[in-house]
């Protein structure tokens, strides 16, 4: 290992380190994770159990929210508004837009692409809207 190689390695590490320090200072990344977790839990509870009532969303109403500006999805009977997160999907916006307004198709796509474990993140990336109500004859 010659001196030049070590110098380049140190330069790379320092440069990336400075980039991280600069980036972390412009983001709120040092929030206490325990508080954040509690906030999420409280938010989920307030969303899902507000007054012990979860609005019933029909398949037809869900299907109306099918664009990047208004995207609802349903997983395991719970409907979420993920509009704010559509543009943040690392796999691209299009992959999400194609399943906006969907229940079964969304579940299949999420499970196939990321596995069932990722479904537990839905309450964190989206806003709980209500429970999917299956209307007789609406689903085949």
């Amino acid at each position: 290992m010659n001196k030049a190689t070590v110098t380049i390695a140190v330069f790379i590490v320092v440069a990336v380190g400075m980039l991280l320090i600069w980036r972390s200072s412009s983001l709120e990344v040092f929030t206490n994770p325990i508080e954040t977790e509690e906030e999420v839990v409280v938010e989920e509870e307030s969303n899902e159990n507000s007054g012990g009532f979860a609005p019933m969303i029909s398949e037809e109403e869900l299907a109306l929210h099918n664009s990047k500006d208004d995207c609802w999805v349903s997983y395991a009977g719970s409907v979420y508004d993920i509009t704010d997160w559509v543009g943040k999907h690392p796999g691209g916006m299009e992959a999400i837009i194609s399943v906006c307004g969907e229940s079964t198709k969304f579940e299949e796509a999420l499970n196939a692409q990321h596995g069932e474990d990722r479904a537990q993140m839905l309450p964190k990336v989206g806003q709980f809207i209500g429970t999917l109500g299956v209307i007789e004859g609406a689903q085949s």
Binding site: S24, L27, V29, P33, R118
Partner: peptide, 20 residues
């Protein structure tokens, strides 16, 4: 979104800092 729950649970950092 892609950080497994167990990583968040054992890490003293926020998820954003883990990603950074």
């Amino acid at each position: 979104y892609f950080i497994p729950e167990w990583v968040v649970n054992i890490s003293p950092f926020t998820p954003e800092l883990i990603v950074l």
